[in-house]
Design a protein around this nucleic acid. Structure first.
Lengths: 230, 230
DNA sequence: CGTGCAATTGAAAGTACTCAAGCCACGTGG
DNA sequence: CCACGTGGCTTGAGTACTTTCAATTGCACG
C-alpha cells in the first residue's frame, strides 16, 4: 500500500477512503510543498489553470462539476495517498474541495511530467494510476447508466466498507448531499434508501454518519439483482 | 460513406465518429496485423485476457458491459483512427463489438508498451490519449448522473454532428438500442425524445438513420437548460 | 407479397424527484 | 441551565419523467 510522508496518515484510520499510489520512493517530493485546507475549502475551481498536481497526504477531498442550474456531479472522492488533478490537459475540469481538514502535497506539474518522462518506472506507475482511474470512471458509468437507486447506494456502501476495511462502524466521511451528487440521486432518495436498508436489516445505523453491515452477502445481493425482485 | 485505411479516412468525413490518434508516424505498426470484422462480430469479451491493443482502421466499434440481468451499458464508440482496448491492466473489462464492418489493427501489447517506454514522444501521445479518454468518461458521468433524457439525446446528437462535421444528413451509425444503452435510457425513450425534437423542429429526420439540424443554437439550448423549463 | 427485425406509438405502472414540513444534535446566548 | 436558532438528516404527499408491456408501423430482403 501507499506509504506516505506522514506515516500516520495510513494507520490512523483517519483516512476513510483508500489508496492508490503515488510517487513511491522516487523523490520528486523534494520540491513539493504541503498545503493545508479546512473542511469546505476549495483547492481549485473548474477552469483554473493547472500548474500543479496533487496528492492527498491526509484527509478527504472531492472533485465535482457544477451545471448551469446548480446541479452538481461529484466525480470522485480521494483519500490518503491518492493522486488527483493529474489528468488535466491545460486547465482543471473539476472543482476540488476539502471534505475534511486536509493536507495536500502539491507537485509543480512541469517537474512532475519531466520526472515521469525520465523514469520508466515512474512512468509505469503513473500509467497505472491513470488506467485505474479510467476503470473507476467506467464502473461509475455503468452504475449511473444502468443501476437503480437501491443498487447505487448499496454499491457505495460496499465501497466505503472496502476502503475502510471493516464491516462495523463504517464512516460516511461525506455529507448526504455529496453522496447524492456522487450517485446521481437526490439527497432525499439517498435517505429513503438508507432507511429502507435499516428496515430490512441490511445495515444498522447507530448514527447518521456511521453504519455496520451484519451480513455482507445480503448487501452483495442488493448490489446485484437484489431489487428488481418482486 | 465510410472510407479506409488510407489517408482519406480522416478527411473524407466518412468516419462518423472521429478523433484522436494513434501511433502517428512511429512504426510500431510494422508488427501489427489487421483483422476484419463483420457488423455484429465480437472482437473480445469482458474477462478475456488482453494480449493486444487495437486501433480502428475503418468502421465503427462499440465497447460495452452487460449486467447479470442483461441490461447493457455502452462505454463508448470508436471510429477511424481511434485506439481502444488500451487501458486494460490484465484482462478486458468490456466487450468490443463491430457496429459496421470493420478493419482493426492489432498491436501486441508487450511490443506496444515497450515502444511507449522507449519513446518519450510516443509516451506523451499515449498519455494524451488516456487523459482524453478519462475526460470523455467524466463528461459521460455528468451526463448520466445529472442530465434528463432530453438533454442526453441532444448532447448525443451534437456529438454525432461534431464528429461527422456536418449539420445535414448526419448519420446514426448505431442502432436505437446502442444509443439507449449508451445514454442510460430505454430504446422507447430515445424514440420519443427524437419525435419530440422533430415536432419542435429541432431536427429533421428524412429516415430513421439520418438527421439534420436546421438551427444548431436551438439544439444547444436543449442541451443546456432547454427542458427543466416549466 | 410474406417474413422478420428495427423503429415507433400508446397506455399503465413505477421510480425518483420536488416541495414542504418535521426531527435532531449542537452551539449560542439569555 | 434551558430556550432558541442553525444545519444536516429524515419523512410525507403529490408529481413528473422514464420505464414496462403491448401493439403497430415501416422497411429491406428473399
Amino acid at each position: 500500500m501507499t506509504a506516505l510522508v506522514n506515516p500516520d496518515a495510513m494507520q490512523s484510520g483517519a483516512a476513510p477512503i483508500t489508496i492508490h499510489n503515488s510517487f513511491g520512493k522516487h523523490d520528486a517530493a523534494s520540491n513539493a510543498n504541503i498545503r493545508r485546507l479546512k473542511a469546505g475549502e476549495t483547492l481549485y475551481v473548474e477552469g483554473d489553470s493547472a500548474p500543479y498536481c496533487f496528492q492527498v497526504v491526509d484527509g478527504v477531498m472531492k472533485e465535482y462539476n457544477t451545471l448551469e442550474d446548480g446541479r452538481r456531479q461529484v466525480a470522485d472522492f480521494y483519500g490518503s495517498g491518492e493522486l488527483f488533478g493529474i489528468s488535466e490537459l491545460n486547465e482543471h475540469l473539476h472543482t476540488a474541495e476539502a471534505i475534511t481538514e486536509c493536507a495536500i502535497r502539491c507537485y509543480p506539474r512541469d517537474a512532475y511530467l519531466k520526472a515521469i518522462a525520465g523514469s520508466p518506472e515512474l512512468s509505469e506507475q503513473f500509467l497505472d494510476t491513470l488506467m485505474t482511474r479510467l476503470h473507476r470512471a467506467r464502473e461509475r458509468i455503468v452504475m449511473l447508466g444502468r443501476m437503480s437507486a437501491v443498487q447505487r447506494v448499496a454499491t457505495f456502501l460496499q465501497r466505503l466498507s472496502d476502503e475502510q476495511d471493516t464491516i462495523d462502524n463504517v464512516q460516511f466521511v461525506m455529507s448526504r448531499q455529496d453522496i447524492a451528487d456522487h450517485l446521481g440521486l437526490t439527497i432525499e432518495t439517498v435517505c429513503r434508501v438508507l432507511t429502507e436498508f435499516k428496515k430490512k436489516h441490511i445495515i444498522e445505523m447507530p448514527s447518521a454518519r456511521l453504519f455496520s453491515v451484519p451480513n455482507i452477502d445480503i448487501l452483495d445481493d442488493t448490489v446485484h439483482g437484489g431489487d428488481r425482485v418482486h
